[in-house]
């Protein structure tokens, strides 16, 4: 039944597209792409734009130098008023301050959903930040966590390095050595505008997004 439908659909499509390109890759390469690929901002301005966009999404942003990172994470955890956090597989041990309760997700022994659901927050690294739209990109590799880890807890603390921030979306794509299997692009906390176009933060995903920007490029963070 299904096999014949497959054939029928493909036959109909092929009959309708007799001019289909024999060399698909060449036809694809010839497509016009006149849009902006590389941004024009300095690295510093780019990071500032990222911070500005994140703040427009009501995300908390804290700047720090690489040697201040552990202390900054601990301070943000404390400042959140929360105690129980999820740590994804591959999260640096130094990021997991001892005074808090850590539920560690391991590659071979992953946390059950109920454990993740009952945690108050999650700490992760990221793959990339896109300044133009204030987007944080997770490829769900080591330190970034399985997809569910950054979804159920109400508070997400994300550590982003200045060297990971690009200006435009096409720059992010050029940073991917090959297409990743899993991606989540996060542009601000979960939101809806379904009732009279009134924007409400926090429907099902985390209601609070907290970002630590690490100035690892030799640049000095401007004071908040």
């Amino acid at each position: 039944m299904s096999a014949s439908s497959r054939q029928r659909i493909l036959d109909r499509i092929r009959a309708a597209t007799p001019a289909a390109a024999p060399q698909l890759a060449e036809a694809y390469a010839a497509l016009p792409r006149e849009y902006v690929r590389l941004g024009a901002m300095s690295a510093n301005a780019c990071v500032e734009r990222m911070i500005e966009r994140l703040r427009e999404y009501d995300a908390e942003v804290t700047r720090c130098m690489p040697d201040e990172l552990e202390a900054t994470i601990a301070a943000r955890l404390k400042g959140s008023g929360r105690r129980v956090f999820v740590a994804p597989a591959g999260l640096p041990a130094e990021w997991q301050a001892e005074e808090f309760v850590w539920k560690v997700d391991k590659n071979l022994k992953s946390l059950p959903v109920s454990e993740i659901e009952s945690a108050e927050g999650v700490v992760t690294a990221a793959f990339c930040g896109i300044a133009d739209s204030g987007t944080i990109v997770l490829h769900h590799q080591a330190g970034e966590g399985r997809r569910i880890l950054t979804l159920l807890p109400d508070w997400h603390l994300c550590v982003l390095r200045a060297s990971q921030v690009v200006e435009t979306l096409p720059e992010y794509f050029s940073r991917c050595p090959q297409p990743p299997a899993l991606v989540t692009w996060i542009s601000g906390p979960s939101a809806t505008a379904d009732i009279e176009m009134t924007r409400i933060k926090g429907v099902h995903g985390p209601r609070f997004l907290d970002v630590i920007l690490v100035f690892d490029q030799g640049s000095q963070p401007t004071l908040n």
Partner: peptide
């Protein structure tokens, strides 16, 4: 997103490829 809701990007865009062991 710009055309649909007047946002630079929608809050969440997800991409997955088939089945990932241990995730989803």
């Amino acid at each position: 997103a710009r055309s649909a809701t007047g946002e630079r990007m929608s809050p969440y865009t997800s991409l997955w490829t088939g089945v990932t062991p241990g995730d989803g």
